[in-house]
């Protein structure tokens, strides 16, 4: 089966800073890919390029049959966003809306679902992240871990074919990290295709079907979780050494 995501020699620079320098990798349908690497190695940028939040300067990206290149149009990006969900480190819930409204917004306005349909869907995805009772709460009334789970539910409500996660537990205390990772693990078990940038090495190794180590804007090493136990490059060896 052809991969659901394909990056081919992707380059991206901010001014004179070359953040991505020929990044290539594939994501197979239904797999979990974990991207690890030092701060500033370009992990977030790679993820943001994959759903068009950053325009690439060279190479090409194919995501769920959408082609991203230098001249991608707004309509093409919107079509892409119908298929790809993303969860950010800072949750980015809409603070003026309740949890339920946060989740129902896109199904109602984008998918044109009726209020009743959207409500059922919201209840379902909230149940999946274990927060069914928080439907009418405002984001500010929730803990960080709960907010992040709502953000995951909001993304799930659009029934994406692929989900991207950018260090979604980095702002959380260790106790709250666990509850978010549990939700992600369940998603992986349900067969969701996921690409996640993470600093949780144990999670990357345990849940990731593929681990990608980025260094200085390049894919430095790539393989299954075992590359973390037996690094081939001194850079990954050093990174794992520091991380564990």
């Amino acid at each position: 089966m052809s991969p659901i995501v394909k990056l081919n020699k992707v380059s991206k620079s901010f001014g004179s800073l070359n953040v991505l320098q020929g990044v290539s990798f594939d994501v197979a349908q239904g797999s979990v890919v974990a991207i690890i690497g030092r701060s500033g190695s370009g992990k977030s940028t790679a993820l943001r390029c994959m759903n068009g939040l950053e325009k690439i300067n060279g190479g090409e990206i194919t995501v769920c049959n959408h082609h991203l290149h230098q001249n991608v149009t707004k309509a093409q990006l919107r079509a892409l966003h119908l298929d790809v969900g993303i969860v950010f480190q800072s949750y980015n819930l809409f603070p003026h809306l309740t949890v339920g409204q946060n989740i129902m917004l896109a199904p109602k306005w984008v998918r044109k679902q009726s209020k009743a349909e959207a409500k059922d869907l919201a209840a379902e995805v909230l149940g999946k992240v274990g927060l069914a009772e928080k439907f009418d709460a405002y984001p500010e009334q929730l803990s960080g871990g709960q907010q992040q789970r709502v953000a995951i539910a909001r993304s799930l409500a659009m029934q994406p074919k692929l989900m991207l996660f950018d260090e979604v537990t980095s702002a959380l205390d260790p106790e709250l990290t666990g509850e978010v990772l549990k939700v992600m693990e369940n998603l992986a078990k349900d067969g969701m295709t996921m690409v996640l940038v993470t600093h949780e090495m144990a999670f990357a190794k345990g849940v990731g079907d593929k681990v990608i180590f980025m260094h200085q804007g390049k894919v430095w090493e790539e393989g299954d979780g075992e590359i973390l136990s037996a690094p081939q490059t001194p850079e990954l060896r050093q990174f794992v050494g520091n991380g564990l």
Binding site: N51, L53, V84, V110, S155
Partner: peptide
């Protein structure tokens, strides 16, 4: 700006992003 991005990633139209979010 992250609120704009979150709205964009949910496939809301620019008009909806502006008036709803």
């Amino acid at each position: 700006k992250t609120q704009w991005e979150a709205a964009e990633c949910l496939a809301l139209h620019p008009f909806q992003r502006f008036w709803l979010i």
